[in-house]
Design a binder for these strands. Structure first.
Length: 288
DNA sequence: AATACCCCCTGAGTGC
DNA sequence: TGCACTCAGGGGGTAT
């Protein structure tokens, strides 16, 4: 269930197992995930070394010695399992209170020269993998229309004002628009709007300079907190007792319909509404 | 151009 | 035990 912080957590987990390693064998157990695997997927990966593991928005990027980039998206349910040379299994993410065997949905297996095996598991198969030449990656189909990186230097109040200028679309939709800011998902948009005191249905183009600045600040804040929470799980993602990491991170509004708002001095109650077919959680008492 | 809706897929949870 | 229905963290495509 990855949003940007979860993808970043997965990247950090995969990095030590994959960087510097060579693909010894690649197995795609079906012809497609959300999309067909690229032609000669296994052959183009085999023998290549992973130079580095990167991320852009919710996309994982493995830079290969061949000059290709292995682009991986986790969709809604994608996850990686790491099997160490000693046979221990790890999941580089915050959802692993325990490593659950679910080989039915193991769709891709990477066997690496360092003895690690990386298995991609995806129940709903909304994830995908692609191979794109590094030269021109930014203008390739996945990235050409992509908005700014919310944890990058581009995110600021001024940028948000410029991106949202004249927009009648509700803030919720504008923030979910990957062509404006790339990487915000349903949870963190709800959380950021609550922290910023902004109503999800408010037209995006109506933000004041001060409000846009506040929004930029809380977006960065909520994402960084979540990355930190995910990271804490990384230290103990095998046989964790549930007391660590992501699951201790309480969302303030997401999936909390009917609960009291946690904003200081606010007496409101969290409500759910549907926007563009997706649930929005918010407090009408403190978000305007 | 901008916005709204439907869809891909499987499984978990709920109510009867 | 089963069945019908709703919902799920993403995002691409199409209709308006």
């Amino acid at each position: 269930m990855p949003e940007l912080p979860e993808v970043e957590t997965v990247r950090r987990g995969l990095e030590p197992a994959m960087t510097g390693a060579r693909f010894v064998a690649v197995e795609a157990r079906r012809p497609d995930l959300r999309f067909a695997f690229p032609a000669d997927f296994a052959r183009r990966l085999s023998g290549q070394t992973v130079l580095s593991m990167g991320r852009r928005a919710k996309y994982l990027l493995a830079d290969l010695s061949s000059g290709d980039v292995l682009v991986m998206h986790l969709g809604m349910t994608g996850r990686f399992l790491i099997t160490a040379p000693d046979g221990g299994m790890l999941e580089p993410g915050e959802f692993a209170n325990e490593v659950v065997e679910d080989s039915k949905h193991d769709h891709v297996v990477f066997r690496l020269s360092n003895g690690f095996t990386i298995t991609y598991n995806d129940v709903r198969r909304f994830g995908f993998m692609d191979l794109v030449p590094r030269v021109g990656l930014e203008t390739s189909r996945h990235f050409k229309a992509m908005g700014i990186e919310p944890l990058g230097n581009e995110l600021s109040g001024e940028t948000i004002e410029r991106l949202f200028e004249g927009k009648a679309a509700p803030l919720k939709a504008a923030l979910l628009d990957q062509g404006l800011i790339a990487g915000l998902g349903n949870i963190y948009v709800c959380e950021a709007l609550n922290r910023a005191g902004l109503a999800p249905e408010r037209p995006a183009g109506t933000l004041t300079e001060k409000q846009a600045g506040k929004l930029a600040t809380v977006i960065r804040e909520v994402l960084e907190e979540a990355v930190e929470a995910g990271g804490s799980t990384l230290k103990d993602y095998r046989h964790t007792d549930g007391s660590l990491g992501y699951f201790q991170h309480r969302f303030r509004v997401y999936d909390r319909e009917g609960e009291p708002c946690t904003t200081p001095r606010c007496k409101g109650t969290i409500e759910r509404l549907v926007q563009s077919g997706r649930s929005t959680y918010w407090c009408r008492a403190c978000q305007h």
